[in-house]
Simulated assay, not measured.
Amino acid sequence: MIPELGLIEGRFGRIWDEAERGYVVRTLADAGYGFYHYGPKADRPLRREWRVAHTPAHSEALARLGAEVRGAGMRFGIAITPVGSTHPFDDEARADLKRRVADLDAIGIDDLCVLFDDLRGDMPELAARQADVVNFCADLTHASRVYTCPTYYSDDPVLDLVFEQRPQDYLGEIGRRLDPAVQVYWTGEEVCAKAIEPAHLERVAGELGRPVCLWDNWPVNDGARMSRFLHLRAFTGRSADAAQHITGHAINPAIQAHLGCIPALTLPMLYDQRERYAYGAAFAAASRALLGEEFAAMLQQDIAALQDVGQERLGARAERLRARYRAIDHPAAREILRWLDGDDLMTDDEVQTQ
């Protein structure tokens, strides 16, 4: 059993251009992915400046993306993070939400995502107010599916450290108050989960009163620490038996559009092959399919340096890697060169301001 697979473009960092995103759409659609949710943190009219509409040019670009996604056989969704709409959830907030949901509907969406991830949690009646906002938007939108992501989207105690201690019974209350049709994104036991097991998902579903849609933070590599590494390896620590406990499995992509499709292609293999799945063989098959035999073999040789050592510790190896990948005329090779040159490395300030 393969659950509905998708991509939630919900990372920090550089926004892909249309060519990069188009490549990802085509590649994932061909691999059997079923939905694409657009919501990069750097798209300010969807987050920090959500009350302000996209420019006409940007709205047209998103409409083209939606048409491309649907043309490839996937559902298209847009994610909005309505910062400050819950406290107070007053007439002004309702008017702004009504206008912005109409804007997104006009672009053309199958799915609407109303997200609260990475927002402060020390607010009174947090679960109740967030559920009110989501239900309000769900009643307005023409989209046939609605998703949300709570502020505490994992058991990970780092969320309590960064966003204040989560309210008691936060997950249970938000589950009871949300419209039963709303799907809830969840990352697992950790923000970047090393493993996602059926027993954990079953427990969370019981607490929330519904199965979750996985927001899998692999191969995402945003932020000041993770952007120093290329996330290339195939999926590990994910059980195919999780399928019976979730509504879908969405991945959060890497900054590097072409390279990130290598691990993306291994997720359907994991579910399809089950106990026959081997992550090394899956990486080899996916990289050969996307890069060709010679490039894939080279990447296999260098994967430890690129994924484990990291950009800042390569030393003299960096120039040798530049020479190797400069000789390859391929967008993925150019992504490696860009990363080696530090062009996609992020800072903490970027994350805090996006």
Results as ranks from 00 to 15, higher is better:
Ile246Lys: 00
Pro219His: 06
Asn217Phe: 05
His231Asn: 10
Ser227Met: 07
Gly223Lys: 10
Thr236Val: 11
Ala234Asp: 07
Gly223Thr: 09
Ser239Glu: 08
Asn221Cys: 10
Ala234Phe: 05
Asn217Lys: 06
Phe235Ile: 06
Ala240Leu: 01
Trp215Met: 02
Phe229Leu: 08
Ala240Ser: 13
Ala243Ile: 02
Ala240Tyr: 14
Ile246Pro: 00
Ala240Trp: 14
Arg225Phe: 13
Asp222Lys: 05
Gln244His: 08
Asp241Arg: 12
Phe229Pro: 08
His231Phe: 13
Trp218Cys: 01
Ser239Asn: 07
Ile246Trp: 00
His245Met: 02
Gly237Phe: 03
Asn217Leu: 08
Ser227Phe: 06
Phe229Thr: 04
Asn217Trp: 02
Trp215Gln: 02
Gly237His: 04
Gly223Arg: 12
Gln244Arg: 14
Asn217Thr: 04
Arg238His: 05
Gly237Cys: 07
His245Glu: 02
Arg238Ser: 01
Pro219Cys: 09
Ala234His: 04
Arg225Met: 09
Val220Gln: 03
Phe229His: 15
Leu232Thr: 10
Ala224Ser: 15
Gln244Phe: 05
Ala240Gly: 09
Arg225Lys: 12
Ile246His: 00
Asn217His: 07
Asp216Met: 00
Trp215Gly: 01
Ala243Ser: 14
Trp215Cys: 01
Arg225Pro: 02
His245Gln: 05
Trp215Asn: 01
Asp222His: 13
